[in-house]
Nucleic acid binder design. Sequence first.
DNA 1: ATTATGTAGTTGTATGATGACTTTCGGAAG
DNA 2: CTTCCGAAAGTCATCATACAACTACATAAT
Lengths: 257, 257
Amino acid sequence: MSQTVADLRVERKPKLSETVVAAIRKQLLAGEIPPGQKLPTEGQLTEAFGVSRTVIREALAKLAADGLVEARQGAGVFVSEHISTTFGVLAADMGAKDSVALNVLEVRLAIEIESAGLAAIRRNAAQEAAIQEAFFEFERLLLASQPTGPADLAFHRAIASATNNPFYVEMLDVLGRRAIPCDVTSPWSTELVQSDEYQRGLQREHLVILNAISAGDAEAAREAMRTHLAHSQQRYRERLQARQAYYANSLKAASTE
Amino acid sequence: MSQTVADLRVERKPKLSETVVAAIRKQLLAGEIPPGQKLPTEGQLTEAFGVSRTVIREALAKLAADGLVEARQGAGVFVSEHISTTFGVLAADMGAKDSVALNVLEVRLAIEIESAGLAAIRRNAAQEAAIQEAFFEFERLLLASQPTGPADLAFHRAIASATNNPFYVEMLDVLGRRAIPCDVTSPWSTELVQSDEYQRGLQREHLVILNAISAGDAEAAREAMRTHLAHSQQRYRERLQARQAYYANSLKAASTE
DNA sequence: ATTATGTAGTTGTATGATGACTTTCGGAAG
DNA sequence: CTTCCGAAAGTCATCATACAACTACATAAT
């Protein structure tokens, strides 16, 4: 049997509750609702999201399982105390400075290396499918010459999700917002970032990670992720130097003019 | 009688779905349904447990969130393949808070492993001395039969500091506040934690880490830290179970009174 | 002022129905 | 006989509604 072809056919089914979970989680991590405060009632959320109360309840149950919120019968659903404060402080500290960005990237490296190893051990079929889907989405965008940044982020996020430890995802969300290797919105994102060769290299590294996770080899997955992020670090440094050189040149050009 | 103080006890309202979750989880742990196999349908479970489908669905959603099962629309609910490695099996009877603590501890594990590796490479003389100092301080306190918790924390903190990346220290502070393996202030910190043999084991593991960092061997440092924290995880689980047993006993004693 | 009580609001549970998807099985075509 | 196709049954996902249990707050009674 040729299962290779069948493996490529991975169509994911996003459950409604999952999208609601993602939306609410985003708001909670952004600190839009202070800890200890009461969330909107299930009825209000039902109207806001345009889904039935069943979906809302399932989403809230998932968030409660993750420890982000806790429901009290008759009173309401409340934001847990410890979570938001934990990550809110970190997020506040991370300014837009590049020196900070490099350090943050290094912390993110630690998180992702371990999450890759755990994902290799704990992933289930659906989670593995999600990782594959992100990989092929990257491939598709690359062939279509479209920005691949979101797919790259989705790839790493799917891996974190496959650890079945919600904190890895939250950490990645908080850290990733500051230091994304493929941030195409950055002002100094020149053709270097979007070059085909550059992104091909990314995909090669992604493939090694994907294979290791699929094979359930934690050690190999960690090592693959380590080299991948180490390379990302290197590329990031090069881009910083390139920008620095650019400024230096423009400065010199201005002085000679 | 002043029941207000006694309200702190674990007289929470057990939701029906939680009961069902515990029952199914126990069956899964017992291996009554082999991995990859299909669970009874929601309808069958409603009859078996005598509750509504709402409760069954919520219970299954919680189990799916823990990574124990996965539901495929139109097909059924199946036992996940990699059960033994997830935290779900540990969270059998413990509350949500303990489960969160274990997850946080796992994230801290990722941070510390990498920080050990970086410390081995980047440490300067003063930082290496600080690590050694913390190590010997632990030794001194141990011989003096005094609490070693602070020294243990200082040891890990010195390593994080030796990475020359301030975020590692900050990260450790934030996470450590939640789940400190050597929290002597905990009510369930019995003689198990303070036993000489227990702390001797800690020191042996510390020594391996210290040697690797001094030798500048990043790989060895990471591996040593990994085993150290993995053991800490194991000890933490045992203490949670011990506390659980303690509460069960006190409850039984209260009922016979 | 304090206590008791009621009332509205919220979450927890039950029930029924419908849509979407998967599997299975039988029949038709080759 | 084998292969392909489609109908049908089984199952989860979602929706809608209703009631029960509980909480918080306002109100009334002492």
